[in-house]
């Protein structure tokens, strides 16, 4: 015969076991949504206030395995009045998507220039997860975002090229090619994003040069044009496996 207290203990344990998962999901959901809000806020700051970007790419002997690329961004601003229009949470994948928007009259951008935004509404989307296994697509999307920023800067400001080239019978063979980018960027808008059939992410961005000229009250490079780029980002670094043997040589 099982004592009453043990019966009661077993019953309570079973009840906790059944009830607990839904309780944990609730906490995870809140944390994931909160993280997505932060991602969306960062995107808004990067879009309006702007960001500093430093990127390098280097390849030796035109062997893809020797390719090295890095992109760093930095931004810091205080923006009030961000609202969250659309919050979606996928419980199965533990991924949250938040759309943030803000309308400002004026703002001092990353270059210290005052921009007259005339209360135009800027919107950006942020994704997040609390489950590391699910972070792949989100990391790929961020990589694509950074790639798009870099491409916009390359188009507007340009880049530095350093190379060592071998010439054989007037034929060029690139031995070492390096590119460097260092600049600030603001008012870039995301026009589209997603993932392709290979699970690589893409982010399409545009920059309206005329609008920037108007907002800043000064002319910029070749006015009257809209610059459009598409950044790409991968989920997995399967490339490193081929890279390691090349380094040993």
């Amino acid at each position: 015969m099982i004592p009453k207290t043990i019966k009661y203990f077993i019953l309570v344990t079973v009840c906790i076991g059944v009830m607990a998962p839904s309780g944990w999901t609730g906490n995870k959901r809140i944390m994931t949504i909160r993280a997505a809000k932060v991602m969306a806020e960062r995107a808004i700051v990067e879009s309006i206030y702007g960001l500093k970007l430093k990127a390098t790419e280097e390849v030796k002997d035109m062997i893809p395995a020797s390719f090295e690329g890095s992109t760093e961004t930095k931004t810091l601003a205080k923006i009030k009045g961000i609202s969250y229009d659309d919050i979606v949470y996928d419980q199965e994948k533990d991924i949250a998507k938040v759309t943030a928007s803000v309308a400002l009259d004026t703002i001092t951008n990353v270059d210290g220039k005052v921009m007259n935004l005339k209360n135009k509404v800027y919107k950006r989307v942020g994704f997040a997860t609390s489950t590391p296994e699910m972070a792949g697509p989100i990391r790929a999307l961020r990589a694509a975002e950074l790639d798009a920023y870099k491409q916009l800067i390359k188009q507007i400001v340009g880049f530095t090229l350093e190379s060592q080239t071998k010439v054989e019978n007037y034929m060029l063979k690139s031995d070492l090619v390096k590119t460097k980018v260092l600049a600030t960027l603001y008012l870039a808008e995301v026009t589209d994003y997603g993932w392709d059939k290979h699970n690589d992410a893409f982010v399409k961005m545009s920059l309206n040069v005329s609008e920037i000229s108007e907002v800043l009250g000064e002319g910029i490079v070749d006015g009257g044009q809209v610059i459009e780029v598409e950044g790409q980002g991968a989920q997995e670094d399967d490339f490193s496996a081929t890279k390691k043997p090349a380094k040993k040589e």
Partner: peptide
């Protein structure tokens, strides 16, 4: 035949 090293602003 030879080598060409350059630095350029693009």
């Amino acid at each position: 035949n030879g080598t060409v090293n350059i630095k350029a602003k693009a």
